[in-house]
Design a protein around this nucleic acid. Structure first.
Lengths: 267, 267
DNA sequence: AAGCAACTTTTTGTATGCAAACTGTTGCCC
DNA sequence: GGGCAACAGTTTGCATACAAAAAGTTGCTT
């Protein structure tokens, strides 16, 4: 049966001060207030930290495609034991970022041109839906935040700051997807986006293409402001299309056929 | 350094007969031929079996929403130890079928009306893309298989065999998605589909709605045969829309507003 | 010296162990 | 009896242990 002191105990969980007991009623109430605002799960599971850390390492290129993931070495590096590390590898393999080879360990998954094309096709469909939903559901605050990010991004572009520009750019696209109000959509988008980010295509960006991308974003923001779903979808699709050619160039896996398209985009 | 007897050893992996050594050259060559056709990974990891089994149990309703997943009990039931079971739970939690509560174990995730709506919106976008790509990329064999499934499904409908009908129905939708030739799309679709299948909506199917669904499938097959992407997308969207109302009814989470729409669909 | 089999070391897959967190129970106090 | 604190049992999270598999090494044979 539930009992009331137990409730207090729960509320204290994760505060790290429980064994010391109550200091005074004020403290207790504050802590209760703070705790009740938290979701059920506060404590961070080790394997989740590992997933996040490893995903970053793969996306950032710290771990490159084909790299064998030695468990003992990774454990040492991440400061945990094999159990949570292996749980993390299993999770990353369902995300498709690592490949498990039974009895031969895990390797960082390779990103083929075919996969990039597939991912872009799906992201295109998701962005189109996100654009439509955002036009319908976006709050004023959300739009203002996207606009703010846009101007911040333009500032980075003007100063030629590639990495910060890239971060803003990513945040804008994620913000649009979030503004759809569809968390499932956002989660799927984010997962696909992680794959694409592995091809560090921004390094391959010509000034002309960079300027064009900013111009495209300008139009996207404008259509979003007018809540013009049809126009927005067209713009997002074109934007993603240009991005695809840049990413494929970066991937170095272009066929001659595609390279022509890519070169054309640089004119 | 690699050495040749090692190669033979690899080729024998998974054959279960390695320690017995070579019987004769014919056997060896057969085995090599068979082995080289296999993908790198043949041996089935325990946690993957567990994921599949548990996913089935959740989708089939053997494990219902909110059920606490006691590790020891599940281990006994599945015949494995806690390590692979826990790995499986982590994977299922990334798929969204299970919720992890730190220090309090895992529970079968609850499917809310909001989630169902979100999932359907995303599935709609994916089906539309799949339809477009299938019209472009589908082989004659793939279309024939879909047509065969369609007639098999009609047979089950005619005989009032609900469960087999449902299986065929699912297979048709999956076959269309596969026919897109986009594996990423198919994987994402399958994952979302697993969530929807949990709401065992076929039980709530009126004869009128059932007949209508079959008629819709008739039109879908026809548009697919003509490779009419635009028409196919419209039909798939409408079909999914009707399915949404049925699923929501089954979920018993309908608002009054939605219930009207659902009732209308039953006229 | 090339090729290969036997041996050693490393790595992986799963089971088990253990401390910390949670849950249920008992009995005390009012 | 209702409420709660102390206790006991259970369950979880992570580490470790151990066997099987893979990778590396040595030395023999030709």
């Amino acid at each position: 049966m539930a009992n009331h002191s137990r409730l207090l105990y729960y509320l204290y969980r994760g505060q790290g001060s429980w064994p010391l007991g109550l200091r005074n009623m004020g403290d207790a109430l504050d802590t209760i207030a703070a705790a009740t605002r938290l979701p059920v799960a506060e404590r961070r599971l080790l394997h989740i930290s590992a997933v996040d850390r490893l995903r970053d390492m793969i996306v950032q290129g710290e771990l490159t495609a084909g790299t064998k993931l030695n468990e003992r070495a990774l454990c040492e590096q991440l400061g945990l034991s094999r159990t949570p590390l292996r749980e993390a590898l299993k999770v990353l393999s369902t995300e498709g970022l690592v490949a498990l080879q039974p009895n031969r360990g895990a390797v960082v998954a390779t990103l083929t041109e075919r996969m990039v094309r597939e991912i872009f096709a799906v992201m295109g469909a998701l962005e189109a839906l996100a654009g439509e939903l955002a036009c319908r559901n976006m709050t004023a605050d959300q739009f203002n935040e996207i606009r703010a990010l846009h101007y911040q991004m333009r500032a980075h572009h003007a100063r030629g700051e590639l990495a910060p520009y890239f971060r803003c750019n990513q945040e804008i696209h994620l913000a649009i997807v979030e503004a759809s109000g569809n968390a499932t959509l956002a989660a799927n988008y984010r997962s696909l986006n992680a794959h694409v980010r592995r091809a560090r295509y921004m390094a391959n960006l010509s000034q002309a293409r960079w300027d064009q991308a900013v111009a495209e974003h300008e139009n996207i923001l404008e259509a979003l402001g007018r809540r013009d779903a049809a126009q927005l979808q067209d713009l997002l699709r074109d934007h993603l299309g240009s991005k695809l050619t840049v990413v494929l160039t970066a991937l170095g896996a272009l066929t001659d056929n595609v390279k022509e398209t890519a070169d054309a985009a640089y004119d």
